[in-house]
Amino acid sequence: MIISILMGISVAFFGFVLQTSIAGVNRKIIGRVQKRYGPKWYQEFLDIFKLLSKRSVTHGWIFDFGVIMALGGIIATAMFMPITNDLMAFPGFDNFFIFVYLIAVGMLGMAMSASGSGNPLASIGVMRALTTMLAYEIPFMIIVLTIIKLTGHSSLSEIAMFQQTAVAGLEFSGTWFMIALPVGFAVAFLSLMGMLGKKPFETYIAPAEIASGPMVEYGGKQLGMLFIMHEITVFIEVSLFVHLFLGGAENIWIFLIKYFLVYTSVNLISNVNGRFKIDQVVVFFYKWPLLFAVMQAFVAIYLGWVI
Protein backbone atom coordinates (compact mmCIF):
# COMPACT_ATOMS: atom_id res chain seq x y z
CA MET A 1 0.00 0.00 0.00
CA ILE A 2 2.76 2.45 1.02
CA ILE A 3 4.89 1.58 -1.99
CA SER A 4 2.01 2.16 -4.37
CA ILE A 5 1.29 5.53 -2.70
CA LEU A 6 4.96 6.52 -3.08
CA MET A 7 4.75 5.28 -6.65
CA GLY A 8 1.69 7.49 -7.09
CA ILE A 9 3.46 10.53 -5.70
CA SER A 10 6.34 9.95 -8.08
CA VAL A 11 3.87 9.63 -10.98
CA ALA A 12 2.33 12.95 -9.95
CA PHE A 13 5.77 14.57 -9.68
CA PHE A 14 6.78 13.10 -13.04
CA GLY A 15 3.59 14.50 -14.49
CA PHE A 16 4.35 17.93 -13.12
CA VAL A 17 7.91 17.99 -14.39
CA LEU A 18 6.92 16.57 -17.80
CA GLN A 19 4.10 19.03 -18.35
CA THR A 20 6.06 22.07 -17.14
CA SER A 21 8.95 21.36 -19.41
CA ILE A 22 6.73 20.60 -22.39
CA ALA A 23 4.86 23.85 -21.67
CA GLY A 24 8.20 25.69 -21.74
CA VAL A 25 9.11 24.03 -25.02
CA ASN A 26 5.71 24.97 -26.40
CA ARG A 27 6.23 28.60 -25.42
CA LYS A 28 9.46 28.43 -27.40
CA ILE A 29 7.64 26.91 -30.41
CA ILE A 30 4.94 29.61 -30.22
CA GLY A 31 7.75 32.18 -30.07
CA ARG A 32 9.29 30.71 -33.17
CA VAL A 33 5.91 30.79 -34.87
CA GLN A 34 5.76 34.53 -34.10
CA LYS A 35 9.32 34.95 -35.43
CA ARG A 36 10.84 35.64 -32.06
CA TYR A 37 13.13 33.53 -29.89
CA GLY A 38 10.67 32.79 -27.09
CA PRO A 39 11.74 32.16 -23.49
CA LYS A 40 14.14 29.50 -22.09
CA TRP A 41 12.67 25.97 -22.11
CA TYR A 42 12.63 25.95 -18.27
CA GLN A 43 10.88 29.33 -18.06
CA GLU A 44 7.76 27.74 -16.54
CA PHE A 45 9.86 26.35 -13.66
CA LEU A 46 11.38 29.77 -13.12
CA ASP A 47 7.93 31.39 -12.99
CA ILE A 48 6.60 28.86 -10.51
CA PHE A 49 9.61 28.99 -8.18
CA LYS A 50 9.67 32.81 -8.41
CA LEU A 51 6.02 32.84 -7.27
CA LEU A 52 6.74 30.38 -4.44
CA SER A 53 9.52 32.63 -3.21
CA LYS A 54 7.33 35.75 -2.97
CA ARG A 55 5.36 36.82 0.13
CA SER A 56 1.77 37.53 -0.81
CA VAL A 57 -1.60 38.26 0.74
CA THR A 58 -4.34 36.03 2.25
CA HIS A 59 -8.06 36.80 2.73
CA GLY A 60 -8.87 34.39 5.51
CA TRP A 61 -8.65 30.68 6.22
CA ILE A 62 -11.05 29.58 3.46
CA PHE A 63 -8.85 31.39 0.89
CA ASP A 64 -5.85 29.22 1.87
CA PHE A 65 -7.77 26.00 2.65
CA GLY A 66 -9.36 26.13 -0.84
CA VAL A 67 -5.94 26.32 -2.54
CA ILE A 68 -4.63 23.41 -0.44
CA MET A 69 -7.73 21.32 -1.19
CA ALA A 70 -7.44 22.12 -4.90
CA LEU A 71 -3.78 21.16 -5.16
CA GLY A 72 -4.34 18.09 -2.95
CA GLY A 73 -7.26 16.90 -5.09
CA ILE A 74 -5.36 17.30 -8.32
CA ILE A 75 -2.25 15.54 -6.95
CA ALA A 76 -4.55 12.70 -5.82
CA THR A 77 -6.04 12.43 -9.33
CA ALA A 78 -2.59 12.42 -10.90
CA MET A 79 -1.51 9.60 -8.60
CA PHE A 80 -4.09 7.34 -10.24
CA MET A 81 -2.93 8.14 -13.78
CA PRO A 82 -1.30 5.18 -15.64
CA ILE A 83 1.77 6.24 -17.65
CA THR A 84 2.40 3.06 -19.65
CA ASN A 85 0.75 -0.36 -19.61
CA ASP A 86 2.55 -1.58 -16.56
CA LEU A 87 3.84 1.70 -15.06
CA MET A 88 0.92 2.77 -12.82
CA ALA A 89 0.43 3.28 -9.09
CA PHE A 90 -2.84 1.42 -8.48
CA PRO A 91 -3.36 -1.28 -11.14
CA GLY A 92 -7.02 -2.13 -11.71
CA PHE A 93 -8.49 0.88 -9.84
CA ASP A 94 -7.79 3.63 -12.36
CA ASN A 95 -11.50 4.03 -13.25
CA PHE A 96 -12.40 6.75 -15.77
CA PHE A 97 -15.02 8.29 -13.45
CA ILE A 98 -12.40 8.82 -10.71
CA PHE A 99 -10.56 11.21 -13.00
CA VAL A 100 -13.67 13.13 -14.10
CA TYR A 101 -14.91 13.60 -10.54
CA LEU A 102 -11.61 14.08 -8.69
CA ILE A 103 -10.80 16.94 -11.07
CA ALA A 104 -14.10 18.35 -9.86
CA VAL A 105 -12.62 18.39 -6.32
CA GLY A 106 -9.76 20.53 -7.60
CA MET A 107 -12.23 22.76 -9.41
CA LEU A 108 -14.36 23.03 -6.25
CA GLY A 109 -11.34 23.91 -4.07
CA MET A 110 -10.22 26.67 -6.42
CA ALA A 111 -13.79 27.95 -6.88
CA MET A 112 -14.34 28.01 -3.12
CA SER A 113 -11.18 29.96 -2.36
CA ALA A 114 -11.75 32.31 -5.33
CA SER A 115 -15.24 33.22 -4.08
CA GLY A 116 -13.78 33.39 -0.56
CA SER A 117 -11.40 36.10 -1.72
CA GLY A 118 -14.31 38.55 -1.86
CA ASN A 119 -13.48 39.84 -5.35
CA PRO A 120 -16.52 39.88 -7.72
CA LEU A 121 -14.23 39.29 -10.71
CA ALA A 122 -13.14 36.00 -9.12
CA SER A 123 -16.76 34.86 -8.64
CA ILE A 124 -17.59 35.78 -12.23
CA GLY A 125 -14.51 33.83 -13.36
CA VAL A 126 -15.61 30.79 -11.32
CA MET A 127 -19.14 31.06 -12.74
CA ARG A 128 -17.71 31.10 -16.27
CA ALA A 129 -15.43 28.15 -15.51
CA LEU A 130 -18.39 26.07 -14.28
CA THR A 131 -20.58 27.11 -17.21
CA THR A 132 -17.90 26.12 -19.72
CA MET A 133 -17.42 22.86 -17.85
CA LEU A 134 -21.15 22.15 -18.17
CA ALA A 135 -20.77 22.84 -21.91
CA TYR A 136 -17.73 20.77 -22.91
CA GLU A 137 -18.24 17.87 -20.47
CA ILE A 138 -21.42 16.38 -22.00
CA PRO A 139 -20.09 15.58 -25.55
CA PHE A 140 -16.84 14.25 -24.06
CA MET A 141 -18.72 11.95 -21.64
CA ILE A 142 -20.92 10.60 -24.44
CA ILE A 143 -17.89 9.65 -26.52
CA VAL A 144 -16.28 8.03 -23.47
CA LEU A 145 -19.59 6.18 -22.93
CA THR A 146 -19.24 4.74 -26.42
CA ILE A 147 -15.64 3.73 -25.77
CA ILE A 148 -16.52 2.06 -22.46
CA LYS A 149 -19.49 0.33 -24.09
CA LEU A 150 -17.30 -0.97 -26.94
CA THR A 151 -14.37 -2.08 -24.78
CA GLY A 152 -16.46 -3.29 -21.84
CA HIS A 153 -13.92 -1.81 -19.38
CA SER A 154 -13.96 1.56 -17.71
CA SER A 155 -10.35 1.45 -16.39
CA LEU A 156 -7.91 3.43 -18.53
CA SER A 157 -5.18 0.85 -18.76
CA GLU A 158 -7.58 -1.84 -20.04
CA ILE A 159 -8.92 0.59 -22.64
CA ALA A 160 -5.34 1.33 -23.71
CA MET A 161 -4.45 -2.37 -23.92
CA PHE A 162 -7.69 -2.95 -25.87
CA GLN A 163 -6.50 -0.55 -28.56
CA GLN A 164 -2.95 -1.85 -28.74
CA THR A 165 -3.30 -5.57 -29.41
CA ALA A 166 -5.99 -7.13 -31.63
CA VAL A 167 -7.55 -9.77 -29.41
CA ALA A 168 -9.46 -12.45 -31.38
CA GLY A 169 -12.57 -12.47 -29.24
CA LEU A 170 -13.18 -8.75 -29.09
CA GLU A 171 -14.66 -7.22 -32.20
CA PHE A 172 -13.02 -3.79 -32.59
CA SER A 173 -9.80 -4.35 -30.67
CA GLY A 174 -6.46 -3.44 -32.11
CA THR A 175 -7.17 -0.07 -33.73
CA TRP A 176 -6.74 3.25 -31.99
CA PHE A 177 -10.04 4.89 -31.23
CA MET A 178 -8.66 7.93 -33.07
CA ILE A 179 -9.14 5.86 -36.22
CA ALA A 180 -12.01 3.68 -35.00
CA LEU A 181 -14.24 6.63 -33.97
CA PRO A 182 -13.05 9.52 -36.17
CA VAL A 183 -16.01 11.82 -35.42
CA GLY A 184 -15.73 10.97 -31.73
CA PHE A 185 -12.02 11.86 -31.83
CA ALA A 186 -12.78 15.30 -33.32
CA VAL A 187 -15.46 16.03 -30.68
CA ALA A 188 -13.16 14.84 -27.89
CA PHE A 189 -10.39 17.05 -29.23
CA LEU A 190 -12.69 20.07 -29.06
CA SER A 191 -13.71 19.20 -25.51
CA LEU A 192 -10.04 18.71 -24.62
CA MET A 193 -9.41 22.31 -25.74
CA GLY A 194 -12.34 23.34 -23.56
CA MET A 195 -10.95 21.34 -20.62
CA LEU A 196 -7.48 22.82 -20.94
CA GLY A 197 -8.98 26.31 -21.18
CA LYS A 198 -7.12 26.98 -24.40
CA LYS A 199 -7.80 30.14 -26.42
CA PRO A 200 -11.22 29.73 -28.11
CA PHE A 201 -12.74 28.59 -24.80
CA GLU A 202 -10.52 30.67 -22.48
CA THR A 203 -13.47 32.66 -21.16
CA TYR A 204 -12.78 32.01 -17.48
CA ILE A 205 -9.15 33.23 -17.40
CA ALA A 206 -9.82 36.09 -19.80
CA PRO A 207 -7.11 38.61 -18.72
CA ALA A 208 -8.72 41.45 -20.69
CA GLU A 209 -12.30 40.98 -19.48
CA ILE A 210 -12.14 39.81 -15.87
CA ALA A 211 -8.47 40.30 -14.96
CA SER A 212 -7.48 36.58 -15.13
CA GLY A 213 -10.76 35.42 -13.59
CA PRO A 214 -10.44 33.30 -10.44
CA MET A 215 -6.70 34.11 -10.07
CA VAL A 216 -7.41 37.82 -9.40
CA GLU A 217 -6.53 37.87 -5.73
CA TYR A 218 -3.75 35.28 -5.77
CA GLY A 219 -0.10 36.21 -5.54
CA GLY A 220 3.02 34.61 -4.15
CA LYS A 221 2.74 31.03 -2.97
CA GLN A 222 -1.02 30.68 -3.49
CA LEU A 223 -0.60 31.60 -7.16
CA GLY A 224 2.41 29.32 -7.38
CA MET A 225 0.43 26.41 -6.00
CA LEU A 226 -2.39 27.16 -8.44
CA PHE A 227 0.11 27.15 -11.30
CA ILE A 228 1.35 23.74 -10.14
CA MET A 229 -2.25 22.59 -9.97
CA HIS A 230 -2.88 23.92 -13.49
CA GLU A 231 0.15 22.07 -14.85
CA ILE A 232 -0.85 18.76 -13.23
CA THR A 233 -4.48 19.20 -14.44
CA VAL A 234 -3.19 19.65 -17.99
CA PHE A 235 -1.02 16.53 -17.55
CA ILE A 236 -4.09 14.55 -16.38
CA GLU A 237 -6.34 15.71 -19.19
CA VAL A 238 -3.81 15.22 -21.96
CA SER A 239 -2.72 11.79 -20.77
CA LEU A 240 -6.40 10.87 -20.35
CA PHE A 241 -6.85 11.85 -23.99
CA VAL A 242 -3.75 9.87 -24.98
CA HIS A 243 -4.97 6.71 -23.22
CA LEU A 244 -8.51 6.97 -24.53
CA PHE A 245 -7.83 7.81 -28.17
CA LEU A 246 -4.19 7.11 -28.98
CA GLY A 247 -3.99 3.66 -27.48
CA GLY A 248 -1.88 4.36 -24.37
CA ALA A 249 1.82 3.48 -24.48
CA GLU A 250 3.88 0.29 -24.34
CA ASN A 251 6.94 2.11 -23.09
CA ILE A 252 7.72 5.56 -21.74
CA TRP A 253 9.11 7.00 -24.97
CA ILE A 254 5.98 6.37 -27.00
CA PHE A 255 3.99 8.03 -24.21
CA LEU A 256 6.25 11.12 -24.28
CA ILE A 257 5.98 11.46 -28.06
CA LYS A 258 2.21 11.05 -28.12
CA TYR A 259 1.86 13.42 -25.16
CA PHE A 260 4.04 16.06 -26.80
CA LEU A 261 2.22 15.78 -30.14
CA VAL A 262 -1.22 16.18 -28.57
CA TYR A 263 -0.28 19.10 -26.34
CA THR A 264 1.60 20.97 -29.04
CA SER A 265 -1.19 20.55 -31.58
CA VAL A 266 -3.72 21.88 -29.05
CA ASN A 267 -1.40 24.77 -28.25
CA LEU A 268 -0.81 25.67 -31.85
CA ILE A 269 -4.51 25.67 -32.70
CA SER A 270 -5.31 27.72 -29.64
CA ASN A 271 -2.74 30.36 -30.51
CA VAL A 272 -4.38 31.32 -33.78
CA ASN A 273 -7.84 31.67 -32.26
CA GLY A 274 -9.53 34.65 -30.64
CA ARG A 275 -11.70 34.18 -27.55
CA PHE A 276 -15.41 33.23 -27.52
CA LYS A 277 -17.96 35.15 -25.49
CA ILE A 278 -19.29 33.00 -22.64
CA ASP A 279 -22.76 32.62 -24.26
CA GLN A 280 -21.17 31.50 -27.51
CA VAL A 281 -19.16 28.79 -25.73
CA VAL A 282 -22.28 27.19 -24.18
CA VAL A 283 -24.33 27.44 -27.40
CA PHE A 284 -21.36 26.19 -29.50
CA PHE A 285 -20.88 23.02 -27.49
CA TYR A 286 -24.61 22.22 -27.45
CA LYS A 287 -24.92 22.56 -31.27
CA TRP A 288 -22.50 20.59 -33.41
CA PRO A 289 -20.26 18.69 -30.95
CA LEU A 290 -23.25 17.30 -29.02
CA LEU A 291 -25.02 16.35 -32.26
CA PHE A 292 -21.95 14.59 -33.65
CA ALA A 293 -21.26 12.90 -30.33
CA VAL A 294 -24.78 11.45 -30.16
CA MET A 295 -24.62 10.45 -33.82
CA GLN A 296 -21.23 8.78 -33.30
CA ALA A 297 -22.48 6.98 -30.17
CA PHE A 298 -25.63 5.78 -31.94
CA VAL A 299 -23.71 4.57 -34.97
CA ALA A 300 -21.00 2.88 -32.91
CA ILE A 301 -23.19 1.15 -30.32
CA TYR A 302 -26.34 0.22 -32.17
CA LEU A 303 -25.22 -0.16 -35.76
CA GLY A 304 -21.72 -1.35 -34.94
CA TRP A 305 -20.07 0.66 -37.77
CA VAL A 306 -16.61 1.09 -36.25
CA ILE A 307 -13.64 1.45 -38.56
Binding site: G31, D47, S56, E217
Partner: peptide, 16 residues
Protein backbone atom coordinates in the same frame (compact mmCIF):
# COMPACT_ATOMS: atom_id res chain seq x y z
CA UNK B 1 12.89 42.84 -29.09
CA UNK B 2 10.96 39.94 -27.53
CA UNK B 3 10.72 40.76 -23.82
CA UNK B 4 9.67 37.13 -23.19
CA UNK B 5 13.25 36.12 -23.95
CA UNK B 6 14.23 37.71 -20.64
CA UNK B 7 11.39 35.87 -18.89
CA UNK B 8 9.28 39.01 -18.69
CA UNK B 9 5.54 39.05 -19.41
CA UNK B 10 2.50 41.20 -18.76
CA UNK B 11 0.19 40.24 -15.82
CA UNK B 12 -3.33 41.53 -15.11
CA UNK B 13 -3.39 42.32 -11.37
CA UNK B 14 -0.95 43.91 -8.88
CA UNK B 15 -1.12 40.81 -6.62
CA UNK B 16 0.52 38.74 -9.36
Amino acid sequence: YDMERLGMGPMATPRQ
